[in-house]
Computed example of a mutant assay.
Amino acid sequence: MKLIGSTASPYVRKVRVVMAEKKLDYRFQEENVWSEETAISTANPLGKVPCLVMEGGEAVFDSRVIVEYLDTLSPVGKLIPGTGRERAEVKTWEALADGVLDAGVLARLEATWAGRQDGERSQAWMARQLGKVRAGLQAMSQGLGDKPYCSGIHLSLSDIAVGCALGWLEFRFPQIAWRTDHPNLARLMDKLMQRQSFIDTKPH
């Protein structure tokens, strides 16, 4: 398998962490989708990463679809429950973490996209998106409480998704003091950063 992605993307990191935890072999192909020379559309018509290219050339895209597929490839380290409320809980955690990222990415693009002049950037839009980020962090903190992990007593996709979101905020929005505001999230992140899968995929 070949994974097309960027080392700065939190969605790509989520897939890479899952692959590492599942002990799956793959080749990583770095791709800058913002470059004029990018060829990502040959694999994903939406022009986005991550994109997983199978041995037969078929492409699977969207990080949620990819990690769901990857979890079925090996019984090692099951990350998503098969059915029921436990499955819904893990997928909801993933949706919350990805939603925080979606809002953060929109705010960052508004602030940095080269296609706009400074006078064209909407402060109100950025404030709205960062409000979603803060609300999402609050919901994560409340959901985690004093538990060792987001869902149950073992690592799951819930924790991977949350960890990738927190790591990206640390990378791109160091001014958001989520560690101070939510010490339980900081403890979870510190625990995740002891895992080789998180050490090896730190955004840069």
Rank of each mutant, 00 (worst) to 15 (best):
M1Y: 05
K2T: 03
K2Q: 14
S6L: 06
V12T: 11
R13K: 05
V15W: 07
V17T: 08
V17Q: 12
K22Q: 04
K23G: 02
R27K: 15
Q29S: 03
E31F: 07
E36Q: 14
S41Y: 15
T42C: 14
C51I: 06
C51L: 12
G56Q: 02
A59F: 06
V60I: 13
V65N: 04
I66R: 07
V67M: 00
V67I: 13
Y69W: 13
D71N: 00
L73A: 09
S74G: 01
P75K: 07
G77F: 03
K78T: 03
I80W: 02
T83N: 13
R85D: 11
E86Q: 08
A88C: 08
E89M: 12
E89L: 05
K91P: 02
W93T: 14
W93R: 08
A95G: 04
A97C: 07
D98K: 13
L101I: 09
G104N: 01
L106M: 14
A107I: 12
W113M: 15
W113G: 08
W113K: 13
R116T: 10
D118I: 10
G119L: 06
G119P: 11
E120D: 08
Q123V: 15
W125Y: 15
M126N: 12
M126C: 03
R128P: 02
Q129T: 01
L130K: 06
K132Y: 13
V133M: 00
V133W: 01
Q138I: 01
M140V: 03
S141V: 05
Q142K: 15
G143M: 09
G143D: 09
L144D: 09
S151A: 15
G152K: 14
S158N: 04
D159F: 10
I160R: 01
A161V: 06
G163M: 08
G167R: 10
G167T: 01
W168F: 02
R172A: 03
F173Q: 06
A177E: 14
T180N: 10
P183D: 06
N184L: 09
L185W: 00
R195F: 11
S197T: 06
S197P: 11
D200V: 03
D200K: 04
T201F: 04
K202Y: 00
P203S: 02
P203Y: 01
